[in-house]
Design a protein around this nucleic acid. Structure first.
Lengths: 228, 228
DNA sequence: CCTTCTATTTAGCAAACACTAAGTATCCCA
DNA sequence: TGGGATACTTAGTGTTTGCTAAATAGAAGG
C-alpha cells in the first residue's frame, strides 16, 4: 500500500499529476485509470476527492484560475468602467499573457481536449516542433510585411477563441459568474449571465456575423436528396 | 427498410453526412450509432463501406484533400524549387485559403476533434458568435495599431498549427506522401518521409525553439516529491 | 493492546462503445 | 417467374468506460 497522505495533500497531488495527463491526452482521451495511475493511487481515491472526472478537470481549471484572480479583478473593474475597447482588449491580453506565463495551462486550454488521432503518437511529438517553427516563422515574416492582416486575425482568433471558450477560459476570466464546478447550473443560465453582462455594456457586434459556426440541421433528414 | 442505393452513392452519402457529425462532436465524441443515424442507415452499412470509424474520418479528409490537389501540386513545385520562403509561405496561404473556401472543412480540422465539455451545449452555440466577434474585433484593431506583432503570431500559429498538424492538414497538403487511409503505415515512417523532405530543402529552424510543446515525463514518476 | 477514524485497495457493476455474424428484403437479369 | 447477387437489418459480441460497495491497512489516542 502506498504512503498515507492527508486528504488535502493527496487531493493537491492528484490535481498536480492530472494536469499533465489531461494536457497530454485530452479530456475524453484520458481515462480515470490513467489519472489514478499518474497520481500513484487507485481509482476510488480519485472519487473520494472529486465527484466525477469532470470535477477533477474543473478543479484544475479553477485552481489555475485562482492564480489569476487579480487579473480577473482588474477585468471586472474595466468592465464596470464601460470602456468596451479597454475591456475586450484586456481579455485578449489576459489570454496571451496567461499562455506565456503558464505554458502547461496554455496547452491544457489550447490543446487540452485535443485528442490524438490514432497514428499521431510519434508524428506529433517529432513533427510538431519543426512544423511550428516553420509556420510561426512564416507568419511572423509575412506579418512584418503587412500581410495576413485580416485573414490571419480571423483564423487565429476563431481558432483561439473557439477553443478557449470551449475549455474554460470564460470561466477562468469570470470565475465568479461561471463556476464550472457547479454542473447543475444550466447552460441557459450561463448564457444569460454572460449575455446580460455584455448587453449592459452596450456591446454590439461590429460585423453582421461571420459564417455561422453551426448548421441548423442536427442530423440531416434521412429523406434528403441523395442525388449523385 | 430504407431506400436502396448503389454502393457508391451510399458511401458518398455517408461521407457527406458524417462531415457534419464529426465537425459538430469531434472524433471521439462521435459514436458510430450517430454516424449511422445521420446517414439514415444502420451501423453495419457503415462497416460495409469503411473498415473502421477512423477510416470514415480519413475518407472525409481525403475526399476533401482531393479537391485541392492542384494546390498541393503547386506546393510540390515550390518545394522542388528550393525556395524555402516561398514554400512555407504557400503552406500558410493554403491553410488560410482552404479555411475560407470551405468553412465546413475548416471547422472539421480546427474544431473537429474538439469535444464539448459537458456543459457546453447551448453555451457554445449562443456564445460563440458573440465571443468571436468581440475578440476578433479586438485583435484586428490592435494589430492595425501594430500590437501583438510577436505574441499573437506565436500563439496563433501554435494553436493553428498544433491543431492542423494533428488533424490531417499535413495529409491534406501532402496527400501523396502521407496517406492516412493506410493506418499500417507507422508514425515513424511518416515522420521520416516528412523530415527527409524538409532536410532535402536544407530547412533549419530559424529560432532555437520555443517553449517545448511537450514535457519529457509521460506519466510522472509516482515517487515524485509530494511537497507540502 | 484495543478501539476508532480515515486513508486506501480489491473486485467488479452497469452502461456505452466499436464492431459483426447471420438473416431478410429488394433489385436485376435470364 | 425464378434465382442469384447485393443492399440492408436484427440482435447481438467482447471490451472499455466511469464509477462504487465492501473489505483492509495504518495512524492516533487511551
Amino acid at each position: 500500500m502506498k504512503v498515507r497522505m492527508k486528504s488535502g495533500e493527496r487531493r493537491a497531488d492528484i490535481v498536480r499529476s492530472a494536469i499533465h495527463v489531461f494536457a497530454e491526452k485530452g479530456f475524453r482521451g484520458t481515462t480515470t485509470r490513467e489519472l489514478a495511475a499518474a497520481a500513484g493511487v487507485t481509482e476510488p481515491v480519485l472519487y473520494q476527492h472529486f465527484h466525477t472526472k469532470s470535477d477533477l478537470y474543473c478543479a484544475i481549471i479553477e485552481a489555475k484560475a485562482g492564480e489569476v484572480s487579480t487579473s480577473a479583478a482588474a477585468l471586472a473593474e474595466l468592465a464596470a468602467s464601460g470602456d468596451d475597447r479597454a475591456f475586450f482588449g484586456a481579455i485578449g491580453e489576459a489570454i496571451l499573457r496567461r499562455y506565456q506565463e503558464d505554458p502547461e495551462l496554455g496547452r491544457l486550454l489550447l490543446f487540452g481536449s485535443l485528442e490524438r488521432h490514432e497514428m499521431a503518437d510519434l508524428f506529433f511529438d517529432r513533427l510538431y516542433a519543426n512544423f511550428y517553427n516553420m509556420v510561426t516563422g512564416y507568419i511572423r515574416r509575412r506579418m512584418r510585411q503587412g500581410a495576413f492582416r485580416k485573414v490571419n486575425a480571423d483564423v487565429a482568433a476563431r481558432g483561439l477563441i473557439g477553443m478557449l471558450s470551449y475549455h474554460g477560459l470564460v470561466t477562468l476570466l469570470f470565475p465568479k459568474q461561471f463556476s464550472i464546478s457547479k454542473p447543475r447550473q444550466t447552460a441557459d443560465q450561463m448564457v444569460s449571465v454572460f449575455l446580460d453582462g455584455i448587453a449592459e455594456k452596450g456591446y454590439r457586434p461590429e460585423e453582421p456575423m461571420p459564417p455561422a459556426p453551426r448548421a441548423e440541421s442536427e442530423r440531416p433528414d434521412s429523406t434528403h436528396s441523395t442525388g449523385s
